[in-house]
């Protein structure tokens, strides 16, 4: 508990988390507004209102990676390990706080986006009736939190802001879709890639992305909740490697 409070103080006594949080929420809401204003009411789906989540997620992952890489950049990681020699606890506390912040940002952003779309197009069918609808909106919190864990883990391993951010963004936004374009084996691999799994949890299968109907990249191999578990396991493995590495390395 003490260590969570320590990491909370650290995170909120610098400005970048506040800015990143505000930008992520604004992006999610803005895209919902844009989509709702332009789409006909009968075509506006729940997934459409959450279109901005992709961009919000990018900002949150940058926030998460920076939370640890700035510690290496400014040497405060040494001050941290000096005060808390148990590096595993120190890093897990940081990961926990960053993940919780990511969760909160996502929930605010997702519900703001959903609310805004409802206000702009009250006649559209945007009621939260099914589990799929809830997953699509409230589920963002879980995905953002786990993605934040991935970013913190990579930041711990790489230790440089630019490097960590590049890896996180290029992998999640560019590499995975590119892999799906590989001839023959591409789609089969893509079905098992973690960020595709995360997307599967959010948007599910049947009502998913009509733009892919013409043979676009395939959706993930598992059912939504298993896809979430898969993504969580991916984050867990990365975090374990990162913590083990930090314990062995000189600070």
């Amino acid at each position: 508990m003490t260590l969570l409070a320590v990491e909370r103080i650290k995170l909120f006594t610098t400005r970048s988390p506040w800015w990143s949080g505000a930008i992520a929420i604004a992006l999610m809401a803005a895209f919902a507004g844009l989509v709702a204003a332009n789409a006909p009411a009968d075509e506006l789906t729940m997934a459409n209102t959450q279109f901005g989540a992709t961009f919000g997620l990018v900002v949150v992952m940058v926030l998460a990676a920076l939370a640890i890489t700035t510690e290496y950049r400014f040497g405060t990681i040494r001050a941290t390990f000096q005060a808390v020699p148990n590096r595993t606890s120190a890093l897990l506390a940081k990961t926990g706080v960053v993940a919780a912040v990511a969760f909160v940002i996502a929930e605010i952003g997702a519900f703001l986006a959903w609310g805004l779309a409802n206000v702009i197009k009250p006649e559209a069918n945007l009621a939260l009736n099914s589990m799929a609808d809830w997953r699509n909106v409230a589920g963002a919190g879980l995905i953002f939190a786990l993605a934040a864990v991935v970013a913190v883990a990579l930041g711990t391993l790489v230790r440089h802001s630019a490097g960590a951010i590049a890896i996180v963004l290029v992998y999640s936004q560019v590499a995975e879709p590119l892999i799906s374009q590989l001839p023959s084996v591409g789609p089969d691999i893509y079905r098992w890639l973690p960020f595709n799994m995360a997307q599967k949890f959010l948007t599910g299968d049947p009502e998913v992305a009509p733009q892919f109907a013409d043979g676009g990249p395939p959706s993930a191999a598992l059912s939504p909740w298993w896809a979430l578990a898969y993504f969580a396991a991916f984050a867990g493995v990365l975090l374990t490697i990162a913590v083990a590495t930090a314990n062995k390395r000189d600070a």
């Binding site: 409070a5 320590v6 650290k10 405060t76 040494r78 001050a79 941290t80 005060a83």
Partner: peptide, 20 residues
């Protein structure tokens, strides 16, 4: 120089104090 440049002196000491 092992201090975050955007953090105040008090905030820097506060998290250290809290940790112990």
């Amino acid at each position: 120089k092992w201090v975050h440049p955007n953090r105040s002196a008090r905030a820097h000491l506060r998290w250290l104090a809290k940790s112990n």
